[in-house]
């Protein structure tokens, strides 16, 4: 793995995670057989179009999927010094304990994520108190103020109400809450989407710094490929509920394997190719009526006969890259290269 300072032991191991929403118009497989491994201290970017299941994946790890959604299968194991726990097998009380202390979540809508009638400090103490009920008020106050300082806020924010803070400050408070109990895994769901670009960058740097300090693994969900390139170590690309490729950030941007990832990278504005923007033809499929075989085949420029009928294998290259595409065999070598290439199949 490139540029992973101190990354070693595995922090989170997700296997075959499946989440289904039972809607009136049918079953929607929002997350369909996702495998993912995160090392301590690592930053993974999770990208994909709106509705591809990124947030559902995050909520499933927090065990916050509400009916009509259901986690159908899979495991999500967090490895700590005190042993391993499968988040998906915990009961209500155990998962409540695990939230924030083992795995924490930094919300998307930070503008509105703080209780408007409660002082910031009380909300932080509230969070800690529900995990360490016997701690003294002074100890918790000190810890909360330290957390505020570590996200570059003044200690006085402790006594302020959310409406007295700016958007960036509110987002920082949410980050401070997220790291209060030094979790092993932090999920940041588009944490900067409501902020302007300058503040975005500052907030992102804050997340990275505190994450390095507590040596947590971070899953950063978002659309902003530029931000991903700067911040993350690895990037996972999701399409219609499935992971299609997981590679290091360098490999992803220079040599993406999966045709969807290739199209995604090509669609980015490029200094060498000024003025030419290339979109991805077609639309993301409705999760209610997924195409047969490989879900990407109707939009894929490399689609072959087999793509229409058989789901692609999950391959891992010798370099540790994950790709799920018929162009590659189980070892991730380019297979079927001799197979007749086809024009893109028209959308159904």
């Amino acid at each position: 793995m490139t540029s992973l300072n101190g990354a070693g032991q595995i922090a989170l191991e997700v296997n075959n995670l499946q989440v289904t929403y039972y809607t009136d118009s049918g079953r929607v497989k929002a997350v369909d057989g996702v495998d993912l491994t995160l090392k301590a201290g690592e930053r993974l970017g999770l990208v994909g179009e709106s509705g591809c299941g990124k947030s559902t994946l995050a909520l499933a790890l927090m065990r916050m999927i509400k009916p009509p959604g259901r986690i159908e299968a899979g495991s999500a194991i967090i490895h700590t010094d005190m042993g391993s726990i499968d988040l998906l097998k915990l009961n209500e009380e155990e998962i409540r304990q695990a939230r924030l202390s083992k795995i924490s979540y930094i919300p998307q809508g930070a503008m509105n994520s703080l209780n408007p009638v409660m002082r910031v400090g009380k909300q932080m103490i509230d969070a800690m108190r529900s995990h360490i009920p016997r701690a003294s008020e002074r100890e918790l106050t000190e810890r909360a103020e330290q957390a505020l300082e570590s996200v570059e806020l003044k200690r006085s924010v402790f006594r302020m109400y959310p409406h007295e803070l700016s958007g960036g400050m509110k987002q920082r408070v949410c980050i401070a809450i997220g790291i209060l109990l030094s979790p092993k895994v932090i999920i940041a769901d588009e944490p900067t989407s409501a902020l302007d670009v300058v503040v975005q960058r500052q907030v992102m740097e804050t997340i990275c710094r505190v994450q390095e300090k507590i040596h947590a693994a971070v899953i950063l969900i978002g659309h902003d490929m530029g931000l991903m390139a700067q911040i993350t170590n690895r990037v996972a690309v999701m399409y219609a509920g499935k992971l299609v490729e997981v590679s290091t950030v360098r490999e992803m941007f220079t040599d993406p394997l999966h045709p969807y990832a290739q199209a995604l990278i090509r669609s980015l504005p490029n200094l060498d190719n000024k003025g030419i923007f290339q979109g991805i033809p077609g639309l993301a499929p409705s999760l209610l009526r997924l195409p047969s075989g490989c879900v990407f085949h109707p939009r894929c420029e490399h689609a072959m006969e087999i793509c229409k009928s058989a789901p692609p294998p999950k391959s891992v290259t010798p370099a540790g890259r994950f790709v799920s595409c018929h162009l590659y065999d189980e070892q991730g070598n380019r297979a079927h290269v001799t197979g007749h290439k086809q024009k893109p199949v028209a959308s159904p």
Binding site: M64, R96, S113
Partner: peptide, 26 residues
Amino acid sequence: GEDYVNFAEHKGLKQGRIFYWYYVRN
């Protein structure tokens, strides 16, 4: 449905506390 009620659950608060301090109170 507000974000702060959701976030309260993400923080691992007990249901009773979310119900009174985050939900009823607002």
